[in-house]
Design a protein around this nucleic acid. Structure first.
Length: 920
RNA sequence: GCGGGCAUGGCGUAAUUGGUAGCCGCGCCAGACUUAGGAUCUGGUGCCGAGAGGCGUGGGGGUUCGAGUCCCUUUGCCCGCACCA
């Protein structure tokens, strides 16, 4: 009986589907386990061999957990709103829903071939109105809440207006925009529009004027994490800064909790660190400088983390966009400041970065008073100060800040060193160490002592206070695009009003074209009658991360019509136990999801404060390109080893017609018409291709489609080979060379069950050696899976098979547990063998075999040994001696022997389970 | 510039976490069975050396009886952030 993987895989995939083998329900009799993959965006190119890496790992873990008796939730769905479908629609006029559906269908076919144990009855698609109803609902909840810093949670807007009515906003500590103080009386006298515009400053989802990343090529704004180096992440178009009124989510309110709770999750340190950097907490002080423009005096607030350097603050700098810029510009300086502002505004973000090293700035004409030295210091305007961070104004300490230093050198401003012995002739001294000098009462202190001492003094003198600043900004939530969730909001007399829950979902309307209108309005402006009760609806749509922020909750209860997730389902499944996905979501999805979840947690809709308990980032699979070498001016191709004798051009060749770097000559001639009459210069009768690691992409002809691997080797081989390639979290190139080894293993495994071509396993009892092989494997597989070390698991299987082949073992007692062990990795072949062993139900209901220690025990025990309180090594004491109650032994392992041979050691005293001494 | 990570045979990797470096697989070499093999099986395969033996985990130094593993230093590569005051 040959191992016919095509037939076997087809048969069992149909079986799982028909029997709904992997459908799960809440079941309080079993412990739950929730394994989630980051759901894919269904792109038109389909899956390549790199995409399923994480899915295979999570599937192995899910199947393993099932074998361990857990009720496993393992769902899949699609992040289906997105830019590519929309751009394809703009080009072709085809509705994005159509292309998306087509892509999803293709993805599903490809996924099914790999044999994943997903519960497809829970599938979600973010573009499905039944799904995005809950995205819109969450938005409305955010619209209807504000963030109370005192209670550290979101509370209802009605609770806020109640307070306003009673006492105004004097005692409110909210995370909010700029709001003036008002009394209850004043509040009550405001008209509806005034009240609404104040409330808007408090809402968690709010409409606000902000400087945004505007991408003219895409015609939309982008979030910070969608922009990289001044270019859009999708498409790489230039991005510029623009002031616009946009929907935003008050993510910044949660900055502290997002930071703190990183301690509660099991993520890699590097990923946590990325989030910490993104949140960017910095502790310092807010300080007021009085500034005069010659006619009027103002109090300008700055933020600093180095209050200790106040004596060296020799000038002040404002961001060009700062609200103070205008007021502090004197008549004499008006013209040059205007010129500077216009130039700064015209620069795109990218240009501003490119010119980062160039020092630019302009004197405002105003002077501030350094509150500690009493000196008059000039106020400058420069774009190295950002309006969006801190207060948009800084005190410049050129001696101890490299940017201030460059600026001071360039404009010839005074530099005062504040740390004893520091050399500032060439560059500033930024390190926070040393003894203070030139600093009045701070002299003689270390920097570490001076920082708090300076802030204490600032507070005592009433010049400012301690303050924590975050880099994390509110998320801009509007996109001027078609293919996204419509906002359930309409405008009545210019005031944003929420739709009622009963009106959800607000479905995406049909439009004639997917482009912005001629007047520059978003595509939804093209929709006929895009109104609610006669009032205009919001024309922007939500960004990509809207739909992906709470999808893991929807999987828990995907068909619930009245709630995002029912209480019972949520209390049972709680949160994701294991989340596997790429590290590229570190500062996007993974922040937004945590924020979204915390918000719902505050409102009592979910019971866990963190959505993803353990997170694993699978590495990227790069492409491994192959090259042929064409002799210049001919259609001759020279093999890799001989190419140095010729002048050649290196050309990519489709990796699918290359096997182990050997070119299939006939396939090559057929590949492209140009090559049909190609000639070859071979080495040892073969054409050897060169290779390089590159990104997997069509243009490099290095895309490997998993379907082809499934055709040639089967899904089980694909699954095991992807795991065998190396550690899960490591990036590595896909290299089909070597897949034969894994395939061979499966064929051997199969052959163990067949004698004389017939399925036959022996019922004899296993020998000690056979049991040892099995139990070593059980132990290894268990610990490897639990530590996600799947590559070493595959090796362990190979070792076990080799041992059994050598012994010639085909005993049921050994083979049946082995089938169970292997089933998470190679489910199809194992189902087949399981059924041939006489079982009628799926192997996924089997029990992970118990490990029996006595089967693997050597005739010895190992003890840690300490010598003179310093030396550590291991010592082996024969079990027979131990059984006889012997507590003394004069035996150690090879290393110890080697060492002991040189020393005058007489015997080693072993106290079982305790400390060991060496006697001389 | 700041932060994090990595470096082991021709290649992908492994190493009980401080204890015989190189498991498993690819590739390669030899052999068996074969009309044949891109099938299967057996043996070999870190480097130098005929051998005994010597040398070996990017380089240098250190701790230790013992270092791929820990510390310092240096080089190279990868990733993230980047005018964040």
């Amino acid at each position: 009986m040959e191992y016919n993987f095509l037939e076997i895989e087809k048969h069992w995939q149909a079986f799982w589907s028909k029997n709904q083998t992997f459908k799960v329900e809440t079941d309080s009799s079993k412990p739950k386990y929730y394994v989630l993959d980051m759901f894919p965006y269904p792109s038109g190119a389909g899956l390549h061999v790199g995409h399923p890496l994480g899915y295979i790992a999570s599937d192995i873990f899910s199947r393993y957990k099932r074998l361990c008796g857990y009720n496993v939730l393992h769902p899949m769905g699609y992040d289906a709103f997105g830019l590519p479908a929309e751009q394809y629609a703009i080009q072709t006029g085809q509705h994005p829903a159509k292309t998306t559906d087509k892509n999803i269908e293709r993805y599903r076919e490809q996924l099914d071939r790999i044999g994943f144990s997903y519960d497809w009855s829970r599938e979600v698609k973010t573009c499905d109105p039944k799904y995005y109803k809950w995205t819109q609902w969450a938005f409305l909840e955010m619209f209807g809440h504000w963030y109370n810093n005192k209670s550290q949670k979101a509370e209802t807007i009605s609770s806020l207006t109640e307070i306003f009515e009673k006492e105004g906003n004097n005692n409110i500590d909210a995370s909010c925009g700029d709001v003036k103080l008002f009394s209850a009386q004043e509040w009550n006298s405001f008209n509806e529009t005034e009240k609404e515009s104040i409330l808007m400053e408090y809402r968690v989802a709010y409409l606000g004027e902000t400087s945004v990343n505007w991408c003219p090529a895409l015609g939309t704004v982008l979030a910070n994490d969608e922009v990289k180096e001044g270019l859009s992440l999708r498409g790489g178009h230039p991005v510029e800064q623009r002031k616009m009124r946009q929907w935003q989510l008050r993510v910044s309110a949660y900055a502290q909790r997002l930071l703190m709770d990183l301690d509660k999750v099991e993520w890699t340190d590097s990923l946590k660190e990325m989030q910490r950097n993104w949140i960017g907490r910095s502790q310092g002080a807010e300080m007021v400088f009085s500034v005069s423009n010659g006619t009027e005096e103002y109090s300008v607030e700055i933020f600093t983390t180095r209050a200790d350097t106040i004596y060296g603050a020799t000038f002040m700098v404002l961001a060009p966009e700062s609200e103070w810029t205008e007021r502090l510009t004197t008549k004499e300086q008006y013209k040059s400041v205007q010129e500077y502002l216009i130039a700064a505004k015209r620069k795109t973000e990218r240009e501003r970065m490119a010119e980062a090293k160039r020092v630019t700035g302009v004197f405002s004409g105003s002077y501030a008073i350094n509150p500690f030295t009493g000196e008059k210091i000039p106020v400058w305007i420069a774009d190295y100060v950002l309006a969006g961070y801190g207060t948009g104004a800084i005190m410049a300490v050129p001696a101890h800040d490299s940017r201030d230093y460059l600026f001071a050198k360039h404009f010839n401003l005074p530099i005062i060193p504040l740390i004893e012995g520091c050399d500032i002739s060439q560059e500033s001294f930024d390190a926070k160490e040393g003894i203070m000098c030139n600093s009045g009462f701070l002299n003689g202190m270390t920097v570490a002592e001076a920082i708090p001492a300076a802030i204490d003094e600032v507070e005592r003198r009433g010049l400012g206070r301690r303050r924590v600043n975050y880099r994390l900004r509110d998320a801009i939530f509007s996109r001027q695009r078609y293919w996204g969730e419509p906002f359930p909001v309409y405008f009545k007399d210019g005031v944003a009003k929420p739709l009622a829950i009963e009106d959800l979902p607000l479905e995406l309307p049909e439009v004639d074209k997917y482009l912005p209108t001629e007047s520059g309005e978003p595509p939804l402006a093209r929709a006929e009658n895009w109104t609610y009760n006669g009032y205009p609806l919001e024309k922007s749509t939500m960004p990509g991360f809207a739909g992906s922020s709470a999808y893991y909750l929807r999987y828990m209860d995907p068909h619930n019509q009245s709630e995002l997730v029912g209480q019972d389902a949520n209390k049972y499944w709680r949160s994701v136990d294991l989340y596997i996905g790429g590290t590229e979501h570190a500062t996007g999805h993974l922040i937004y999801s945590r924020f979204w979840n915390k918000f719902l947690f505050d409102l009592g809709y979910v019971c866990e404060e963190e959505p993803f308990r353990k997170l694993i980032n699978q590495g990227m699979i790069q492409g491994r390109s192959n090259f042929v070498y064409r002799v210049k001016g001919s259609n001759k191709f020279v093999s890799y080893g001989l190419k140095n004798g010729y002048e050649t051009t290196e050309l990519h060749v489709d990796v699918n017609i290359v096997n182990n770097d050997k070119l299939d000559l006939e396939a090559f001639k057929r590949w492209m018409p140009d090559y049909s009459d190609a000639e070859f210069i071979l080495e040892n009768g073969e054409y050897i291709c060169g290779w390089a690691v590159e990104k997997m992409s069509k243009s490099m002809f290095n895309v490997v489609n998993p379907d082809i691997i499934c055709d040639n080797y089967g899904a089980d081989t694909l699954r095991m080979y992807e795991m065998f390639l190396g550690p899960l979290e490591q990036s590595k190139p896909w290299d089909t060379n070597g897949i034969d080894g894994v395939h061979r293993f499966l064929k051997r495994f199969w052959r163990l069950f067949f004698k004389n071509r017939e399925f036959e396993v022996s019922l004899e009892s296993a020998t000690a050696a056979e049991l040892k092989t099995l139990h070593k494997l059980i132990k290894k597989i268990e610990t490897d899976i639990e530590s996600f070390s799947f590559n070493t698991s595959v090796s362990a299987f190979m070792i076990a098979i080799n041992e059994l082949m050598e012994i010639g073992c085909n005993k049921r007692e050994i083979l049946e547990p082995m089938v169970i062990l292997l089933s998470p990795f190679a489910p199809h072949i194992c189902e087949e063998l399981w059924s041939r062993l006489g079982h009628t139900t799926s192997i996924s209901g089997a029990q992970f075999p118990d490990y029996v220690e006595s089967h693997t025990k050597e005739d010895s025990f190992e003890y840690p040994v300490s010598f003179n309180g310093k030396m550590r090594f291991k010592i082996t004491l024969p079990a027979s001696l131990k059984a006889a109650g012997v507590e003394e032994a004069v035996r150690a392992d090879a290393n110890t022997d080697r060492y002991l041979a040189g020393a005058a050691i007489k015997k080693v005293i072993v106290v079982p389970g305790k400390i060991i001494n060496i006697v001389f």
